[in-house]
Write a protein that binds this DNA or RNA. Structure first.
Length: 651
DNA sequence: CTGATTGTTGAGGTG
DNA sequence: ACACCTCAACAATCA
């Protein structure tokens, strides 16, 4: 198609290697190709994204932009400061676009956004091409091969994957790219409304990215900086980018023993500098590394070892097994949609009367972003967990590493997730998932949600009697407590004997180590001496409380979509003395006495918020509306990089 | 259909 | 150091 004018819309595919969507765009032999990024209010204001993940994203964007320029000096990643849903209809006209090409997104949010964009492309007479490229197999095909059901075990995923076919071989990186067309833009900018900025705590300056116009402060479509977003500098040592990870991958692969015999359960969660796993997850999330390329390169190493009769590891514990789990979670989410990310109305998530349950909108059947504080003590425990002040050094070290570096080992995630939910606090997994969503640089909605369900024994896994100890589990890997000494520095000189249970140390030992073990974490210093809190509960007691609670919930046997969960009468089935907000006969689905107001449903619209139409909203450019009133924060927090917003025409 | 086995990654004990 | 057993006990898979 020699006259094709292509808009290549980068999203979570920030790479040039092995990109089926980019290949589809280049196969059009376009006259012009605009590589673009649409700046997205969802990511800026409404999804939980801390400054560390922001930095990683910006690194990936900067890197792919440089790679584009290397292939064509006139081109780069053109970053447009406006969400795709309002921007693209204008861009189609301004740049006389004939084709829109992007990588398929099966995240619930991405699907809704893309449906809306495709509708506007159709109206504008623009042809849309998209390719699956984020997973080993197209997640929708996996679901179909699994009988239309979510893949809830690794064997289901493996069987379904076999039916779909071989994992596609990697596609060559292009050697050149077409010129971009004319960059003149004479269109108004629709700015998102930053009023409900969920990430405000990460900002110390004015957010100016939108205020400086569609092409940015220098009018050159440059990749923004954290400073431009008013965000505090990142604290993570991990840096993003396709070129960074491709080099890293070569180092990993060059160690045949490591790559070929990798077994996840045998890697230490306490290792740091370097960590025990290869830390490719954030690159996979942003698409800087293709999971299929990774898979096949690891297979090459494994095959060579097999021929040489050397040891090899196999799925599910091997490196390729990790990629299979990723596909399993993607296909589970692809099948279940929005309900996958919550207990309420989720057909495959067990109902457990957790503390701090999510509030729900009973009309949309979506969680609202808020939660019920059924017990003030539990709220306190949650806050102490989130910042690493539980008084259990192993848990606190992990949570502090998460806060500072944005990455923690998979088994460390197990330890803290089990502790918050079924093995300690008995707090809803949805609370934990939200904290991880905010802090992890590798946050992948499908994997995060799936793993939280796994660890809380609400889906994917059910052996709730296998419970991680906040003392014994860490000790198994790191008897000396070096990991604790690194991330809980007030304990750095604590005697080895008590490093996992400092409250058991005699006061003389505490004095000698220069730290006082006291209080609930509110006090961090007394008379110049650092204070580390006492444990917030007796773990063996809480372990028993949790196991009995889960056992009863399993016995009751409700899932998120059972009628008694939907209408709140589940309480009748639970012992009033059971753990969690179980008292009474009836209550809100979350557990409290009243249902959350079904907000934003006055027009009687149903379905996911981004697709709603409201006669009240205005959108002069496309005639379509997003209704910010119906699109609550948490309703929008599972998607990727674009979103719903209130329209505010630039003056 | 039944019953045995298996399930990426528990803890605590023994030999 | 490491293999193996038991504790209590869920649910998918397979013969």
């Amino acid at each position: 198609m020699p006259n094709a004018r292509v808009l290549y819309w980068f999203r979570t595919d920030l790479r040039l290697h092995d990109s089926p969507a980019l290949k589809a765009a280049l196969d059009l032999k376009p006259e012009v190709l605009y590589p673009i990024w649409c700046w997205d209010s969802h990511y800026v204001y409404h999804a939980r994204v801390g400054n560390n993940r922001w930095q990683f994203l910006l690194d990936c964007m900067e890197d792919v932009s440089k790679s584009i320029t290397k292939l064509n000096g006139k081109s780069k990643l053109f970053v447009l400061r406006e969400p795709a849903v309002t921007l693209l209809p204008k861009l189609f006209k301004a740049w006389r676009i004939t084709h829109l090409v992007f990588e398929k997104d099966t995240d619930s949010y991405g699907r809704d956004r893309d449906a809306q964009v495709m509708e506007s492309a159709k109206k504008a007479g623009v042809e849309v091409l998209f390719e699956s490229g984020r997973t080993l197999w197209d997640s929708d095909k996996v679901v179909k091969a699994n009988g239309g059901k979510p893949t809830m075990s690794i064997t289901q995923l493996q069987h379904a994957g076999e039916k779909v076919g071989n994992i596609a071989a990697a596609i060559e990186t292009p050697e050149n790219l077409p010129d971009p067309g004319d960059l003149k833009l004479d269109i108004g900018q629709t700015q998102p409304d930053g009023a409900s900025d969920i990430n405000a705590k990460y900002r110390d300056g004015e957010e100016v990215s939108y205020g400086s116009g569609i092409a940015g402060p220098n009018n050159d479509f440059a990749v923004p900086t954290l400073e431009e977003l008013g965000m505090k500098p990142a604290t993570t040592p991990h840096r993003g980018g396709e070129s960074v990870v491709l080099q890293k991958l070569e180092e990993i692969l060059s160690d045949s023993d490591y790559t070929g015999t990798f077994e996840k359960p045998k890697t230490s969660p306490a290792a740091f500098e370097p960590q025990s796993t290869c830390l490719t997850s954030p690159y996979l999330h942003f698409g800087a590394l293709s999971c299929r390329y990774f898979y096949h390169r690891v297979e090459e190493v494994t095959e060579a070892r097999r021929k040489a009769k050397k040891n090899i590891s196999v799925p599910p514990t091997s490196l390729t097994g990790q990629l299979l789990f990723r596909d399993m979670y993607f296909a589970a989410q692809a099948a279940l949609g929005w309900s996958f990310g919550q207990t309420y109305n989720n057909s495959h998530c067990r109902f457990v009367p957790w503390h701090l349950p999510s509030k729900v909108n009973v009309e949309t059947k979506l969680i609202t972003g808020g939660y019920e504080v059924d017990d003030a003590e539990k709220e306190k425990e949650f806050q102490r967990w989130a910042k690493g002040m539980t008084g259990f050094p192993w848990i606190d070290a992990i949570m502090r590493q998460l806060n500072i570096e944005g990455w923690i080992h998979h088994l460390a995630r197990h330890a803290v997730a089990c502790f918050l939910t079924r093995g300690g606090c008995y707090i809803s997994w949805e609370r934990g998932a939200e904290v991880f969503e905010e802090l992890l640089i590798d946050h992948e909605a499908a994997c995060n949600i799936g793993n939280w369900q796994w660890l809380s024994c609400t889906a994917f896994y059910s052996q709730f009697y296998r419970c991680y100890s906040p003392v014994a589990f860490g000790k198994k890997w790191d008897e000396n407590g070096d990991f604790i000494r690194k991330f809980v520095p007030e304990l750095k000189d604590f005697p080895k004997k008590f490093i996992y249970e400092p409250h058991k140390a005699p006061i003389q030992d505490q004095k000698k180590a220069g730290v006082l073990i006291s209080g609930d974490g509110a006090e961090t210093e007394r008379g110049g001496v650092p204070v580390y809190p006492k444990p917030m509960f007796d773990f063996p007691t809480q372990r028993e409380v949790c196991i009995q609670g889960i056992k009863q919930a399993y016995h009751v046997g409700l899932h998120g979509n059972d009628a008694k969960v939907l209408d709140g009468t589940w309480k009748q089935l639970f012992d009033d003395n059971g753990e969690g907000p179980t008292e009474g006969e009836q209550g809100g689905p979350g557990g409290m006495l009243s249902f959350e107001d079904a907000e934003g449903t006055e027009d009687g619209h149903h379905g996911s918020p981004i697709l709603k139409r409201s006669s009240k909203a205005e959108n002069p450019s496309s005639g379509q509306q997003s209704n910010v009133k119906t699109a609550h924060k948490r309703d929008r927090s599972q998607g990727t990089l674009d979103g719903a917003f209130a329209k505010r025409a630039k003056k």
